[in-house]
Design a protein around this nucleic acid. Structure first.
Lengths: 236, 236
DNA sequence: TCAGTTCTAGTCAAGCTGACTATAACTAAT
DNA sequence: ATTAGTTATAGTCAGCTTGACTAGAACTGA
């Protein structure tokens, strides 16, 4: 924070920098309970400001790509992930987000399926964190993630976004576990399945998941496409 | 559209320009029916590209102001309006939004109260349009307004945003007229008032609106603050 | 005084939700 | 082979919300 005063005049002259960042969510089994939990990959900053601190993956916007393309390229380059869902979150443009320079960040949020998440790159400078145990991140990234979490919970309650955290086939109990992990409270299995079965986007298959220590549950499939924001309406 | 090919190389070099624009909504009585309708102020472009066409009010981002401040300054300068509600809509960054240069627009949407809207500047280059009769606007501004309308309808159905289109005191019938104007369908008066009266943010006053040709309706007051997006949570 | 209008309260059936019970279908231990 | 344990799945019931509708209250203007 001392750094702030260093180059006020520079800051007045340079145009505001434009960056794209992404909050990436995936489910991973908890170490203890084994039940799915929300995890977020972060990258370590290798330059000032906030050198050494963890931050959201991000980078500049190149001229040949749309905002969404930039977000998804970025995501691939830093973490090796291909998202199953990608949506714009918010444009953050507060004056003092970065001590050195005025930066406007257009932030996206993404969901990746567990298979993807399992084989994601992890290295010295890329690491996954539990969404509820992030520590102090660079810039205003803690606040950004809080907002992304709020949005995810909201979309989950209304929209049909939960399925993008699962594979192609899933049991209703798995869907419930997703809801429980994200909303952080237990849900009544019977009532939950009644609601889910009432949504037309969920299709019953004639497959069953074998191998459990109990009655094998039926597998279902999601047959809806996202689509709401301008980018996903009809990308020109 | 011919213009597009003119200076491809220039475009590759210059950094993407960052602009702030705002979709402003207000209610005005319809010419014919007299019932309130949604109107939007637009400004005429005095430069290429799209010279002479109508467009959303907007402008550049200066260094000393946040995104929201830029939107509200802009709004004041171009239309003389002070909004009662202001929220970020979306960041539009398609490659071909502007034929001459790559422009990323962070768009806000605003609601203004009828008293404000009545004394708003109108001139050769600023004019109000009915939201459903806009004609062909500059850039992708038709699509932006469509999205803003979608968002307004959505927020209206859930949130408590309708009251920002009204003055401090209002009758329940006026609230209903707002809903009817925005959602574009008639609502049952009895059921509607039951719902509104159930929301805790609506406070009964002991005033009545006199002067009608019928039983004078009671006046109510809205006692809630907006608050949801990062800007409005706690502006630092 | 009465007709016309809107305001306002209330009723009723249909649908959804949360809490709960009960049975089905499998595995693992006895 | 039987039984206990576990999850899957269906169903019931009361409480709440919602849409359609009825009816009276309160004002104005003829």
């Amino acid at each position: 924070m001392y750094r702030t005063a260093a180059n006020v005049s520079e800051r007045q002259l340079a145009p505001p920098a434009l960056a794209i960042s992404t909050v990436i969510f995936a489910l991973r089994p908890s170490e203890r309970s084994g039940r799915p939990t929300l995890w977020i990959p972060l990258v370590r900053r290798i330059r000032e400001p906030f050198k050494g601190r963890w931050a959201l993956p991000g980078g500049p916007l190149t001229h040949s790509e749309s905002l969404q393309d930039a977000a998804s390229r970025n995501l691939r380059e830093t973490t090796g992930l291909a998202p199953s869902y990608l949506e714009q979150l918010y444009a953050f443009g507060g004056l003092h987000r970065s001590p050195s320079q005025r930066v406007v960040s257009i932030v996206y949020w993404a969901l990746v399926q567990p298979t993807e998440a399992a084989l994601a790159d992890e290295s010295e400078n890329v690491r996954w964190f539990r969404a509820d145990r992030l520590g102090d991140l660079a810039f205003d990234h803690n606040a950004i993630i809080d907002y992304a979490l709020w949005r995810l919970r909201n979309k989950m309650a209304y929209g049909s976004v939960a399925y993008h955290l699962l594979g192609e086939f899933f049991t209703l109990a798995q869907v419930r576990e997703v809801y429980e992990a994200v909303l952080d409270r237990e849900l009544d299995p019977a009532n939950f399945r009644r609601q889910i079965k009432a949504t037309p986007e969920i299709e019953e298959t004639d497959q069953y998941l074998q191998g459990g220590k109990h009655r094998p549950p039926r597998l279902y499939r999601f047959t809806g496409r996202p689509g709401l924001d301008p980018d996903n309406r009809s990308t020109p």
